[in-house]
Design a protein around this nucleic acid. Sequence first.
RNA 1: GGAGAGGUGGCUGAGUGGCUGAAGGCGGCGGUCUUGAAAACCGUUGAGGGGUAACCCCCCUCCCAGGGUUCGAAUCCCUGCCUCUCCGCCA
Length: 423
Amino acid sequence: MLDPKLLREQTDVVAKKLATRGFVLDVAVFHALEGERKTLQVETEKLQNERNVHSKNIGILKGQGKDVSAVLEDVNRLGDTLTQLSLDLSAVQEKLHNFCAQMPNIPHNSVPLGKSEDDNVEVARVGTPRAFSFPVKDHVALGEALGQMSFEKAAKLTGSRFVVLNKHLAKMQRALIQFMLDIHLNENAYQEFYVPYLVNADSLFGTGQLPKFKEDLFNTTAGYSLIPTAEVSLTNLMRDEIVPEDELPLQWTAHTPCFRSEAGAYGKDTRGMIRQHQFEKIELVWVCHPDESYQCLEKLRLHAETILQRLELPYRILSLCTADIGFCSAKTYDLEVWLPAQNCYREISSCTNTEAFQARRMQARFRSSKTGKPELVHTLNGSGLAVGRTLVAIMENYQDEAGNIHIPKALQPYMGGLAVIEK
RNA sequence: GGAGAGGUGGCUGAGUGGCUGAAGGCGGCGGUCUUGAAAACCGUUGAGGGGUAACCCCCCUCCCAGGGUUCGAAUCCCUGCCUCUCCGCCA
């Protein structure tokens, strides 16, 4: 959610900035709603005040044993008008709220302008893709040949876009989770959380999944939704909270499964573990002072990169352009890992500064030591990393001609010393 | 699942229809005192929104949430959510 004051006072500036990301702000509609709101609100509050004054008088007069019928008549006359006005007011306020809830965040000045994902800017490449002396197989071929990855079994159990792993591959996924968490906890000072995988609508609104992206979620008959990312559970810990300024920044992490319905993405990446309805992820969340959020974003990105570096996986860093950043994002870096079978880099982490966009939706605040007043925090989130895709990357980058998977050095201790997964 | 009790400000805890946005205590902040600190004493201390160019100021809303009764609701009624105690069940 954008700052309503900013929106009101500099509507054209906001519209211009949102246009860079392909969002058309209907300035006329906004001004009309806003004008209506103001008139109604002022009038409603005026009448409410009148009513309150009268009511207070009634109390005083009654206490003195005097007749109140005259005042009572006055205040009764207010009744109907006031009822109607407040109905009108809340209708307009709801419209205004819905209007604003659909508006995406304003891109930061450092975000490259662009019209599509082709305009994303490559910031750096790290590591060199290995040269293979044999035809590379993709993770599906490798995994099925090993007998440790089955999409068929998953389809029997559930449907498409799920996977069953067993033996070493199942263990490697668990090892990766442990490996990533250990680094974030021991080296990067994150606090670990265990959180619900089902959340309510307020939480989903807070982090921006609602109202716009309801279709991407798995919703339950109980009224809860499965989390599409631990960002929802972690970030919403701050909802309606006010923390002391000196406790900032907060660095939180959790491993969770993530559930995405992604109705719109059918036909894309139909093969393999790249796009699944259920996958494991380590999430990193920062809650910080507004002055520091861009330094924090750099640190967050570095923490995600560390994992790729330790696993010796080649990757590149993209700064997403205005057309490609997410709804809540003011700025996003994507980390893309090299996948030899696809002969390209694929997203494995997305690190985002939402500034106060989510914080405003959540009323997540800190108490300013300067003013003593609550102010909105900035929230950031990033994957550190997507575990399923990391597994894919290891399989494809570390395969040999026989179809065996060599395990990265750093991960071997987590695999009980195992160095190669063989048939 | 069954039976009870309860949800009030950062915390604790009064308040059953009328200057109560809320006593008292704790905590926080400011001050007096002190070489400094502690103690003591005095003062101060919720949030959201609107009006205003803006501070001061003025107004509205908020005592779990949503409805209702009333001129007026923290207080009465209904529904939901949550917490606690006892019993049952269970990983």
